[in-house]
Amino acid sequence: MVRKLGLAGLAALLITLTSCATARTTTTDLDLGNQYLRDGRHDAAAQVYDDVVRLDPQNVAAWNNRGIARVRLGQTVAALGDYTHAIDLSPRDPELYVNRGDAYVLLGNYDYAIQDFTRATQLAPQYAKAYFNRGTARLRNGDREGAQADWHYAISIEPDPWAQAAMVRSAGLGAPPVRAAVNAIPSTLPPRTPVVAAPSASPRFESAAPRLDATALAARGVTRHLNGDRAGAVDDLRAALAVETDTTRRASLERFLRVLEETR
């Protein structure tokens, strides 16, 4: 005997099916929007994210990524609203503050940008990009000394030699004196005071244990490479590789070292 569903049961079933369909649709659309974003089809990406936030207003990634697409379309004020909405939904994700800080920089609101970058460093004390971008905002706000301090520190804690090299080049273009500060990085850095990071909704940015020797050697190796000392750079990177235990950072060091050794 088939049991008939009452109106309440039918309604509950319909809500369940609709929720499942919406979840599948928003996930698929989010992936499509992300692909458009990677392909440089920013207008198409923004339109897809429009649909996602309409169907799922709590989707942090959609709000954030639509902000990225809008920045690339020159719609910075609208992007600022998207980032703010994402922060309201996930206030402990440091990446969201960095993205909004970048938007403030584009709009010339450097004080607000500095506040956002500072909040990101509070949530993730080892987030090098937050320090580096705060340095850029400080420079444009007239604080050259603060900018150099932020750049120097960002470069010293960035674990990826390629990212370190990009930071050095970028800082050098904006403020040549920072190169002298980078050159002062010693072969070993003094132990940093342990900082307990606030709980973060984005575990990929959680603070890691200090990587003193490997990070310092890699930083000096990158600096030597940029100053034309290939042999010294190779020696430092080999030394860093010998003490580095993290597999991802080891892969990055090996890649950088291979490039240097192939350009004799």
Rank of each mutant, 00 (worst) to 15 (best):
residue 23 A to L: 11
residue 136 T to K: 08
residue 210 P to N: 06
residue 235 D to W: 06
residue 53 V to H: 04
residue 20 C to E: 12
residue 233 A to H: 03
residue 13 L to K: 15
residue 259 V to P: 02
residue 213 D to Q: 14
residue 141 N to D: 14
residue 206 E to K: 10
residue 34 N to G: 11
residue 227 N to G: 01
residue 6 G to H: 10
residue 257 L to H: 00
residue 17 L to D: 05
residue 141 N to T: 06
residue 73 L to A: 12
residue 50 D to P: 01
residue 72 R to T: 03
residue 144 R to E: 15
residue 183 N to F: 02
residue 68 I to V: 15
residue 97 Y to V: 03
residue 132 F to Y: 14
residue 187 S to K: 01
residue 143 D to I: 08
residue 72 R to N: 14
residue 169 R to Y: 06
residue 227 N to Y: 09
residue 204 R to G: 07
residue 156 S to H: 01
residue 110 Y to P: 04
residue 249 R to F: 07
residue 29 D to R: 10
residue 161 P to G: 00
residue 120 A to R: 10
residue 174 G to W: 06
residue 219 A to I: 02
residue 235 D to A: 15
residue 71 V to A: 10
residue 223 T to K: 02
residue 95 E to M: 05
residue 200 S to G: 08
residue 33 G to E: 03
residue 247 T to Y: 02
residue 233 A to V: 03
residue 56 D to M: 12
residue 236 D to S: 02
residue 239 A to S: 15
residue 236 D to M: 07
residue 100 R to G: 00
residue 72 R to M: 13
residue 72 R to D: 11
residue 195 V to N: 04
residue 158 E to P: 02
residue 149 A to M: 05
residue 155 I to R: 01
residue 58 Q to T: 15
residue 104 Y to F: 14
residue 146 G to R: 09
residue 46 A to P: 01
residue 29 D to P: 00
residue 9 G to W: 11
residue 178 V to E: 00
residue 256 F to E: 06
residue 171 A to I: 02
residue 207 S to I: 12
residue 44 A to K: 09
residue 226 L to D: 02
residue 85 H to F: 12
residue 216 A to C: 04
residue 15 I to G: 01
residue 1 M to N: 07
residue 145 E to A: 15
residue 104 Y to A: 05
residue 128 A to Y: 07
residue 144 R to T: 14
residue 133 N to D: 05
residue 238 R to M: 05
residue 80 L to D: 03
residue 28 T to W: 10
residue 83 Y to H: 07
residue 133 N to G: 00
residue 41 R to Y: 12
residue 170 S to Q: 13
residue 262 E to A: 15
residue 167 M to K: 01
residue 174 G to L: 05
residue 102 D to C: 08
residue 236 D to L: 09
residue 194 P to R: 07
residue 114 I to G: 02
residue 65 N to T: 07
residue 101 G to Q: 03
residue 99 N to Y: 08
residue 129 K to I: 14
residue 35 Q to E: 14
residue 221 G to F: 03
residue 250 R to M: 11
residue 57 P to K: 07
residue 68 I to S: 05
residue 241 L to I: 11
